[in-house]
Design a protein around this nucleic acid. Structure first.
Ligand SMILES: [Mn+2]
Ligand SMILES: [Mn+2]
Ligand SMILES: [Mn+2]
Ligand SMILES: [Mn+2]
Lengths: 217, 217
DNA sequence: TAATAAAGTTAGGTTAATCTAACAAAAAAT
DNA sequence: ATTTTTTGTTAGATTAACCTAACTTTATTA
């Protein structure tokens, strides 16, 4: 059985390798993402390689093996199901769920997570619009683009948020945006990408950085 | 914040001191209850004393301070609320809940546990009939006696089970006993305390040891 | 291409939580 | 009142997960 620490490494590696085009990760990158020092991470990499979760050569790039991916997705499944539980059943707001799910994702019980999945009605997406893998590990892919690529005078449905930080999510909520709501793009400033939008009759102006973190369509 | 290990020590100490008449515990006793060696426990006792959770002198008995009791009851509250959740909402049987609750009791989030309490309708007792302390720490005391002290030809309501082991609980269920069911005591063998009982029309013979682990009335 | 910067590794150290083996104190039995 | 048993303590070792400081390799830039 994996330790909490090992699970966190695999989850971080999955995220990084999915974000990077070649499916690779580096020691420093991983260390930064876990808020650890590269030296610490280097030790763990040897252990994870030994246990066949990663492929890795000294001074080379890190990739997840099929086994590593399987475990990584398992943690992600648990994380997202717990977030859904907190949001749907316990009235947590979408900016509060992540922190608690970071703990709950490490509970070891296959029965628990499958029963939870059933209790929630086998949800396909979590409160941030991220897909929840099934028991078999199947992930539903949603074709989506970023708000930053939207066009003037069009209306779009919000499918997900990219940044899951509490600060961003609270900001998003304040503008009136929530999952599956509709955003009308009134105008876009070509100089700096500032966008005038309208959500449920409420008008706001948002930055390009903001628009890069909202998934639409 | 307490480590999981420290929390487990406080929970074990609470159980032992409540069971022992003088509210005291010993090093070996605690070690046995945690499946650890006395030497290991001895080290931790120094740490817990330093942090003011216990009162303790070298070669003396261990007692919990008010602070130690407060934290201990906090863990017990979480444990029992999670057991109730697993039993009521996720269809776990009463012999399966304990193991998973042992993990869930360590999740750190006051909001989570209070919302869970609300979601469950502020239950007063867990699936084993044990009282669940309120947010304020108030424990509802139930006056109960043991089945071993029952009388022939009387009928009693089952209030709780003393032993929470999976093996015992499965045995209890097989005899047809569940919480709040009624047991009719048909006869008692004075020699060895064997008891002939009837539950929902189903007759069984149970040992004295069995009868010492069922709370009634 | 040589210098510099960035990325990655190694050596050595810390802390929490465990252990075994040997020892000391207290309690129980003879 | 001794002896024996039980209980509790100490010393020293181990493992996982972290760190800092120094070093090496690879990549970038001048
Ligand atoms: Mn999250
Ligand atoms: Mn999420
Ligand atoms: Mn339990
Ligand atoms: Mn219980």
């Amino acid at each position: 059985m994996l330790s909490q620490t090992e699970e966190n490494y695999l989850k971080a590696l999955l995220k990084i390798t999915l974000d990077n085009e070649h499916g690779e990760a580096g020691t420093n990158e991983l260390a930064a993402s876990l808020s650890l020092k590269p030296a610490t991470v280097n030790d763990m990499l040897k252990k994870l390689k030994e246990k066949q979760f990663i492929a890795y050569e000294k001074y080379g790039k890190i990739t997840l093996t099929a086994l590593g991916k399987k475990y990584g997705w398992g943690i992600v499944r648990k994380h997202r199901l717990w977030e859904t539980f907190l949001f749907e059943k316990l009235d947590f707001s979408w900016d509060e769920v992540h922190e608690v799910a970071e703990q709950l994702e490490h509970i070891q019980s296959v029965k628990l997570i499958d029963k939870l999945d059933q209790f929630l009605g086998y949800p396909s997406f979590d409160p941030h619009g991220d897909p929840i893998p099934t028991h078999k590990g199947v992930v539903k892919i949603q074709y989506k683009k970023l708000l930053v690529d939207a066009q003037e005078n069009e209306t779009y449905k919000v499918l997900a948020v990219k940044d899951n930080s509490s600060a961003f999510l609270q900001y998003v909520a304040k503008v009136g945006i929530q999952l599956n709501c509709h955003i009308k793009v009134k105008s876009i400033q070509t100089f700096d990408g500032m966008m005038h939008i309208e959500v449920d009759g409420k008008k706001s102006t948002v930055s390009q950085k903001f628009a890069q973190n909202i998934f639409i369509e």
